[in-house]
């Protein structure tokens, strides 16, 4: 488990007020939208804001968002690619 992925798990739970979800329940390869978490497009946009605030990474259109937020893994990967030298 890497640090960024774990951090993202916690941030997703707090940002989206997922009271009944534990961070470790979010599997790396499960779909973020439409899966068991019950997230929708509005949640993704809320995460877009959080990612820009906390990591300085902009995801400013819905097509890109759909790719980046496919899974927790793809999100972590995108953040790494866009922030060279940041959390590995």
């Amino acid at each position: 488990m890497d640090r960024l992925t774990d951090e993202l798990r916690r941030k997703i739970v707090t940002t989206l007020n997922l009271e009944e979800t534990k961070p470790e329940d979010i599997a790396e390869n499960d779909p973020l939208v439409g899966g068991e978490l019950g997230l929708d497009s509005i949640d993704i946009l809320e995460l877009v804001m959080m990612i820009e605030k906390d990591y300085g990474v902009k995801i400013d259109n819905r097509e890109l968002g759909a790719k980046v937020f496919a899974t927790l893994k793809s999100l972590a990967q995108y953040i790494r690619e866009e922030t060279p030298g940041a959390a590995a």
Binding site: I42, D43, L45, E46, M49, E52, K53
Partner: peptide, 13 residues
């Protein structure tokens, strides 16, 4: 607070 940088979609809706 964010100098017009951040707006929450959830709060807007």
């Amino acid at each position: 607070d964010s100098d017009d940088q951040f707006a929450s979609p959830t709060d807007f809706i």
